[in-house]
Design a protein around this nucleic acid. Structure first.
Lengths: 349, 349
DNA sequence: CTGAAAGCGCTTACAG
DNA sequence: CTGAAAGCGCTTACAG
């Protein structure tokens, strides 16, 4: 693996410029005449030049590293963030790192502090629940650590952040069910005071309102676990056997609903349509495959990383305007086998 | 983030030794008197010294990086490998990296070649299917790239490798079912010519033989997908309604079996015990939770990384003996809700 | 068992 | 718009 590679000096010599000019080209710095730039690029290609990461870090006193700090049991989610970050980092000569962080005494402050103390990091990306830890965000703000937030609940305007509009996303999925002809629809929310879950319930209610559908006692609650979805099914059918569709605030509960329904002798989607939220890996694998709401996690991470790279590269003076700071991404409503048009007799209010 | 940190020179001065001696201490090199070592360690602690990664890499002309090259849809598996590698790398001052690789024209050779050409890597870890790509292994061997193999099918003695004994693992799980009183047990294998699946079937057959149980037409086949598990359930029940237990060669098929059984009005495990293999994330989440075979993936990766670090650090002369090269890890038979003692009338051959 | 010197390949002020 | 020099913090031969 110890192969003799071309250095920036080799490239500069071949291109007939100074090292500094070559360096400028590779760092997209201004003030290089077009001809020289082309000469450098040509020489680099010829010599198969690749900048030495370590030398760059050492000389530049920075890491060119963006770290995603996470505490999330879902490997799929972490992988999506990582891949999105890579798409932004690779072409810019940056490196993406994923680092698991465990909370200490209820918050992430000390753990993150320890991490930052011993790692050179150009910027960090935080996903829930870290992106909602106000103590942590406060410290980061004070330290001046370049930070990007994925799906933060709170509105912390000093950080760039990406997310989706949960209310609208749930509204869209519910409209979808209404358009399929369903008139009696139940909603299963997640844990109390979970911001996303609350927002999704709001979107659900808004859609029913618009379609003039019954909204009496059709709100149930789980805790985001598969088993709580199964329990919710029991509660729902116990209350009324008229429901023809159920929308759960996450996929796991939706899968629980489906399993309980199968056990109950129901056919999905002929007797009951079920929709989830998140588009987890299992949603497409299972049978019947699950209709759900998909967040463009990778894309969100990619844009976050892009902005962080921008900000770490350019001087603070040309900081982007605030409109650039926060972005809500469009979700995808994914129709799979678990939802179908209402068939047979429909009962309305 | 640009904080003034202590350098090795600071530590050396404070400890009253040369930089070289301090360096020896931090690299676990021999030939340092105990007192000096202690003095260095003490000074390092006092100054909160952390070696500068980039300087180390640049001066040492090596990366201290071990990369896991993978092509596996399962994020959970990749995360396990990564965490195991981290456990070995962190204390040794090495860095673990996970890198996705896509096959080109049926093999991984050119993709890996491109990766190695542009990254300084001290060693690589390969998991299936890369660990079974003979063309790739051949090239790696010729290049002299330090390589560790996870669960290779072929016996490539020049690489260190870790894995489990699939025959024995399946044998153990089958024995477990036999001990629960089951007499009529079906097995669902994976795709044709899949080495692990074949070995697991062999272990299954061996256990039935030992328990003198019927072994007539009780072998079924899927393709490792959930749906193929559901299909297998139909085939099995169509052939005979006497089966009281089914063992699938992976978890996804086992989950498919359970879902098809639930749909069929069966109670799990009262009417049918189901066991899987792999202990995927979903196995514990679902209901009924799935009894399965757990491989110590993280531990396997940890030991692999440890050996690679050893080999990359020590001179080739003290290469470990061949007994050190290959290791089969013990699996864990995990009993959950999907298996239970046979109840009611048992039918035997 | 230990040290003084050179050098890894870049970037950063500084000076034009 | 461009260049010559210094220096980032380590490790590696080399010499004792």
């Amino acid at each position: 693996m110890t192969r003799k590679l071309a250095t920036i000096a080799d490239v500069a010599k071949r291109a007939g410029v100074s090292m500094k000019t070559a360096s400028r080209v590779f760092n997209n710095a201004p003030n290089v005449r077009a001809e020289k730039r082309d000469a450098v690029l040509k020489a680099a290609k010829l010599l198969a030049y690749r900048p030495n990461i370590s030398a760059r870090q050492l000389a530049g006193n920075r890491s060119y590293i963006i770290t995603h700090l996470y505490d999330n049991p879902n490997a799929d989610y972490v992988a999506n963030i990582y891949n999105g970050m890579r798409r932004a980092c690779d072409p810019a000569g940056f490196y993406a790192v994923a680092q698991y962080v465990a909370p200490e005494e209820g918050n992430y402050l000390s753990a993150v502090r320890a991490y930052l103390d011993r790692h050179y990091i150009d910027a960090i990306v935080l996903s829930p629940p870290l992106s909602d830890d106000l103590k942590l965000l406060d410290e980061l703000s004070q330290r001046g650590v370049l930070t990007g937030l994925v799906s933060p609940t709170n509105d912390v305007s000093q950080f760039i952040s990406v997310g989706i509009d949960d209310v609208n996303a749930a509204y869209q999925m519910t409209c979808r069910l209404c358009e399929l002809g369903h008139k009696k629809i139940a909603f299963v929310s997640g844990p109390d005071n979970h911001a996303s879950s609350d927002a999704r319930r709001t979107g659900f209610k808004r859609a029913l309102e618009q379609y003039n559908l019954e909204r009496h006692n059709n709100l149930f609650q789980g805790d985001f676990s598969l088993r709580s979805g199964m329990r919710a099914y029991e509660q729902i059918t116990q209350q009324s056997t008229d429901y023809t569709a159920i929308f759960a605030a996450n996929d796991e509960m939706a899968i629980g609903l489906i399993m309980a329904a199968l056990r109950d002798g129901k056919k999905i989607p002929q007797n009951l349509s079920v929709a989830g939220f998140d588009n987890t890996e299992f949603a497409s694998m299972m049978w019947p495959s699950l209709s759900t709401v998909s967040q463009p996690i990778a894309l969100m991470a990619e844009e976050t990383a892009k902005r962080l790279i921008d900000m770490s590269t350019h001087s603070p003076s040309d900081t982007p305007p605030s409109s650039y700071i926060k972005k809500a991404f469009e979700v995808n409503i994914i129709n799979r086998e678990s939802t179908a048009p209402l068939s047979g007799s429909s009962k309305d209010t």
